[in-house]
Design a protein around this nucleic acid. Structure first.
Length: 568
RNA sequence: GCCCUUGUAGUUCAAUGGAUAGAACAGAGCUCUUCUAAGGCUUUGAUGUAGGUUCGAUUCCUGCCAAGGGCACCA
């Protein structure tokens, strides 16, 4: 990679100058402003103090030394500002790079930074018997994107889901089903309504609360009775619904672990360590987190039932026994951050290595701009309703655009655009921060949006179709003297670095931000003149560049879980 | 009360301790006899606050202010 070539050059220069006593860390970055070159290093400023020299003078010396054996990929090196060394890549480099992109195609951007690592990703842990709401949608979107990015960085990724099939919440729903005599009329919406009703009653009505607790005990003890049969039916229905919606969301799971199984195992493990890491308190088994600066939590209730905590401890064992991953990644909401710090601590105490390898990664929460959406839906919008609502908006917009365009929007395309809008708005900001969702903006096709990326792709495809019709073939050879590198080329080759960074930091937003910049530079390039033109000698190169852009954009969109339509 | 996270244009987001803090939307003004104007080009506008560390701070540290979240039988 070009980065290594530059690093080696700098290292050699420093060695020749004998300025450093220890091996310095060479910080190579892309200057924000492309007029400052393609790469830049602050090494002279970092070392200046150590060797008591003026940073600019030192930089000049380093540059002179590099110039002694200047690699062909570099066309210009200069010292700028307080002592930066800026590197400009040669047009020869860009030509080679474009060739590389065309050759690699779908594989362009693959890197090996996580090669040999097995990563287990737990995403979208749905609560059966409860609605699949926008929080789950956000989780699965981020999880799916991370999964793809990690795979693209060379890791073997296994996605699993951890459905909560047994919980107090499920018991609340079942109680409500019985109370409302709806046990034979179960649908996913009825389950959702019953959950809300059951939760309300649990908080307000002491008699209902006791009944729910009894139901919960029976389910936990797997007592065969009417309740168990209702539970079974509801569990199957919820699970089917979950599988359907995740299919709609383009997510696949290699396996499932259920809370019921994790609970049984977790309870045994926790009980084994009572007196060592856990203690009894008010009839419950707890972990005293305060001793470690964490929260104290109940693992097994005074009803002798395992709760979330014990289940998670059991889950870790299930995961490692079955898959033995190098990293077990769990993607959750920030509200569970401190909770999982406790789990991780307990896991390290009990399991050692397995605990160390368990990583809990948090994304932000959904909030709404203006608040009309929450009033439209009540408190938490259901994922499907929400998608459909956005889809309606896209459909309307599509109809107004169609008047000006020859492309007719079919349902599949509208669904694609809808999901692009949603996914992009979930993935564009750095993880961990709350996402303020603007309904109108996510369906807007303009600017910083998923559909804008799709539109850019469709335009590029349109050009490539025309090039084919007119017989202008993409060609990168023998054009190096004619074309000066443009902004588009200066961005294209960075893609693998971006993917690697997104993978290392578990941050899809680097890709989202990069793609917008890339698409924007392509659209500027598009506007400067005709790309397909038989009379233009540079046209084959421009077509090649368009093709390279298509490849990078499509690969990048795929990492975000966004489809790249041929036409729109 | 204790703990965690976040404060950047009017709004929603960027910025691996570096150069003139980038975009998008909204506002003002251009731009289709040309491969998709859902585009492109100009332009107005921002680091919550007070200190500290550093050659250099949006970034690291501390106080304050503001927002969100978490603190034992929910998940």
């Amino acid at each position: 990679m070009i980065r290594n070539i530059l690093e080696n050059s700098i290292e050699t220069a420093l060695w020749e100058l004998k300025v450093n006593k220890t091996k310095p860390i060479i910080n190579l970055e892309h200057p924000e402003d492309l007029s400052h070159g393609d790469y830049s290093t602050n090494i002279a400023m970092v070392l200046a103090k150590q060797v008591a020299q003026n940073p600019r003078e030192l930089a000049e010396k380093i540059v002179a030394e590099i110039k002694e054996r200047q690699p062909k990929e570099i066309s210009k090196i200069e010292v700028a500002g307080p002592g930066f060394i800026n590197f400009y890549l040669s047009s020869e480099f860009f030509v080679l790079q474009n060739k590389e992109i065309l050759k690699a195609g779908k594989k362009f951007g693959l890197n090996q930074s996580l090669k040999g690592k097995k990563i287990l990703v737990e995403k979208s842990s749905p609560n059966l018997f409860k609605p699949f709401h926008i929080g789950h949608l956000l989780n699965i979107t981020i999880g799916e994107s991370l999964t793809r990015i990690l795979s693209f960085s060379g890791a073997k990724v296994i996605s699993i889901a951890y459905p909560s099939d047994i919980s107090l919440g499920a018991s609340k729903t079942i109680w409500a089903l019985i109370d409302k005599k709806l046990e034979n009329k179960m649908t996913i919406n009825i389950l959702g309504e019953c959950y809300v009703y059951g939760t309300k009653k649990y908080d307000e009505d002491e008699k209902a609360k006791q009944e729910i607790i009894e139901i919960n005990k029976k389910i936990n003890n797997k007592e065969s009775c009417d309740i168990w049969n209702i539970y079974k039916k509801g569990r199957d229905l919820s699970l089917k619904y979950f599988k359907d919606i995740t299919a709609r969301l383009d997510s696949k799971f290699a396996g499932y672990f259920y809370e019921s199984e994790a609970g049984v195992l977790g309870k045994k493990i926790v009980e084994k360590y009572v007196g060592k890491f856990f203690e009894k308190s008010e009839g419950a088994i707890i972990f005293k987190g305060e001793e470690y600066g964490l929260h104290t939590r109940v693992f097994i209730t005074s009803q002798n039932l395992p709760v979330y905590e014990a289940k998670d401890i059991g889950l870790i064992s299930l995961k490692f026994k079955k898959y033995n991953p190098d990293i077990s990644l769990v993607i959750t909401d920030v509200e569970q951050k401190q909770y999982f710090e406790v789990i991780k601590k307990v896991a390290i105490l009990i399991y050692g290595d397995w605990g160390e390898k368990s990583m809990y990664w948090q994304h932000g929460r959904m909030q709404f701009e203006g608040g009309d959406i929450s009033s439209r839906y009540g408190n938490v919008p259901l994922a499907e309703d929400f998608i459909d609502e956005v889809k309606k908006g896209v459909s309307k917009k599509m109809a107004s655009v169609e008047k000006k365009s020859s492309i007719k929007g079919d349902d599949k395309l509208i669904e694609n655009i809808t999901m692009a809008g949603l996914r992009y708005s979930f993935l564009r900001s750095s993880p961990g921060k709350n996402i303020i969702f603007d309904f109108d903006k996510s369906i807007s096709f303009e600017g910083d949006s998923g559909p804008y990326l799709q539109y850019s792709y469709a335009r590029a495809q349109s050009i490539l179709r025309k090039a084919k019709e007119e017989g202008v073939k993409a060609k990168v050879e023998n054009t190096k003297s004619k074309v000066t590198p443009n902004t588009l080329e200066k961005l294209l080759y960075r893609f693998p670095e971006i993917v690697e960074r997104a993978g290392n930091e578990y941050s899809p937003h680097y890709i989202a931000t990069y793609l917008i910049e890339l698409a924007s530079s392509f659209n500027s390039f598009y506007a400067t003149g005709k790309i397909v033109d038989k009379k233009d000698a540079e046209s084959p190169y421009k077509v090649a560049l368009t093709e390279a852009f298509s490849i990078v954009l499509k690969n990048g969109l795929n990492l975000l879980g966004i489809q790249a339509p041929e036409k729109m």
